[in-house]
Design a binder for these strands. Structure first.
Length: 465
RNA sequence: GGUGGGGUGGCGGAGCGGUUGAACGCGCCGGUCUUGAAAACCGGUAUACGCCUCGGCGUAUCAUGGGUUCGAAUCCCAUCCCCACCGCCA
């Protein structure tokens, strides 16, 4: 959520921001509604003030008259009753006017909030303009000595690559058919060493972020209330991407949603709280199952483990003071953690500065990290895929956009309550990450060397096949 | 799933239709006293929004949302949450 007061002062900042992100939102309409809303509120409040004052005068008078009614002979009672009635009628006009104003305010408020929630965070000025991921800008790349993605796979390893699907089939690592039988398209079963690799790499990532980088590990609910989806900024825009559990249809007071990332629960933990400054920064990590409907992605990346409905992800979030410099430092630090992990695994990767159109509604800035996936990209004359970068990580910087929605604040040195800043980044998501693992570490005979960093988590096993 | 009891400020805990944003205690902050500290005493101590002559003023908030009433923390309804017991269960 953006700051309505700031929007009043700088409407163009938000109009430009929405335009840069390609989000259609009627900010002029919001300003109009806001003006109306405030006028009504002012009148309603002053009417209420008069009503309160009047009530305090009348109240005791009615009280005394009622007491009199009990003691006085019946001959006088009708006179007292009419006095009471007279007093009671006094605030009636006010009451009607207030009810009228209440109604008008109640009619405007949801309209106002709908627009307010839809206004995206303006991109930072240093974010390059663009309309889609095609306009993202490569910042830097890294690769191990033994695999340079600027050369072909054959040049790197001396043989033609198999895809992760072929490798998975060879070694019975994934059962796509039965996964689909059970749960439809984009479903899978990790089996045998596939399941072990998955657990091993998640555990490696979880240990790395918690023990080496001091993030507090948490297990969190992956089924949450709608307000948490709204609070973290995934709703309303991402409503179609979330699985919806309609508990209200079964008599419950509210529906639930499956989270598409551990970020939701990690951030929602402190919703509606006022933290003390010395609690900050909060560094949390979780490994959680993520659910994504992939609505609108029909036909895209349908084969293999790339785009699936359910996966597991180690996620990191930071909640820090409302300080841009600190926020930016954390962003760099969180990216550095991922780079260190990928270097441990010896995966070639690159950093991409996402352009304005690719940021999503809540981010001021986003850096994607992509790992080299030999099976992606165009197929050459020999029938070998050229390989391509595939997104494995995404590091977001949100200022107070998310904390404002979550009502997550802290008390600063002056004792004022201030919305925190928040950031999040993938640590590692599997099984997508098994794509580079299997494909990069395959040998000519189809066997797979297990990365050194992973071997301790695989009972010191060195190869598959 | 069933039955019963509850949700009041940072915490504990009163209030159960009329100057109650809320007694009292604890905690916290400031002050007096003290060489210093403690004790004692005095004062202060919520959040949000709106208005504004930047000193304030107003409104809302006693789980949440409705309702009754001239007036609701207090009465009614719905929902959420917590606790206890029973049932079911990894």
């Amino acid at each position: 959520m953006i700051d309505l007061k700031d929007l009043r002062d700088n409407p163009d900042k938000y109009k430009d921001g929405a335009r840069a992100k390609g989000v259609a939102v009627d900010i002029d309409r919001l300003l109009e509604l806001d003006t109306q809303h405030r006028a009504l509120l002012a009148e309603q409040e002053s009417q209420r003030a008069t009503q309160k004052k009047l009530s305090k005068e009348i109240g005791p008078q009615i009280g005394t008259l009622r007491k009199q009614l009990k003691t006085v002979p019946e001959t006088h009672s009708s006179e007292i009753e009419s006095q009471i009635r007279e007093l009671e009628e006094k605030p009636l006009q006010l009451k009607n006017r207030i009810a009228e104003l209440d109604e008008q305010i109640a009619a405007i408020k949801p309209k106002l909030e709908t627009i307010l929630l839809a206004i995206p965070q303006p991109p930072d000025p240093d974010v390059p303009p663009g309309t889609s991921e095609a306009d993202n800008v490569q910042l830097r790349t890294w690769h191990p000595n033994w695999f340079n993605p600027s050369k072909s796979f054959v040049d790197n390893k001396g043989f033609a690559p198999r895809t992760h699907m072929q490798l998975a089939e060879m070694h019975n690592l994934v059962d796509f058919e039965r996964g689909v039988k059970m749960s439809g398209s984009r479903s899978y079963i990790l089996t045998g060493d596939g399941a072990r690799l998955h657990q091993a790499i998640l555990r490696l990532a979880f240990d790395f972020i918690t023990t080496e980088h001091g993030f507090v590990g948490c297990t969190v609910p992956v089924i949450v209330r709608e307000e948490m989806m709204v609070g973290t900024g995934f709703f309303p825009a991402g409503h179609d991407q979330a699985y919806h559990i309609e508990e209200s249809k079964r008599g419950s007071g509210h529906d639930l949603f499956l989270t598409g990332t551990g970020e939701v629960s990690l951030m929602a933990m402190h919703a509606d709280e006022i933290l003390s400054a010395d609690q900050l920064p909060l560094q949390y990590a979780t490994v959680s199952t993520c659910f994504r409907r992939e609505a609108g992605a029909a036909g895209k990346d349908t084969a293999g483990l790339y785009r699936i409905h359910q996966f597991d992800k180690v996620e990191q979030v930071v909640i820090c003071k409302a300080d841009e410099t600190e926020s930016r430092q954390w962003h760099q630090k969180m990216i550095g953690i991922v780079e260190a992990l990928l270097q441990k695994l010896e995966f070639p990767y690159r950093l991409l500065q996402c352009c304005t159109g690719d940021l999503g509604p809540k981010n001021a800035d986003m850096i994607d990290i992509e790992s080299w996936m030999p099976s992606r990209g165009d197929v050459d004359a020999d029938g070998n895929p050229a390989g391509a970068w595939g997104e494995t990580h995404s590091a977001s910087r949100l200022y107070d956009y998310q904390c404002r929605r979550l009502n997550l604040r802290y008390r600063n040195d002056q004792g004022k309550t201030v919305f925190c800043h928040s950031l999040n980044n993938t640590v590692l998501a599997s099984p997508r990450v098994l794509i580079p693992l299997l494909e990069l570490y395959q040998n000519e005979d189809g066997s797979i060397t297990i990365p050194k960093a992973l071997q301790p988590y695989m009972n010191n096993q060195q190869r598959i096949g």
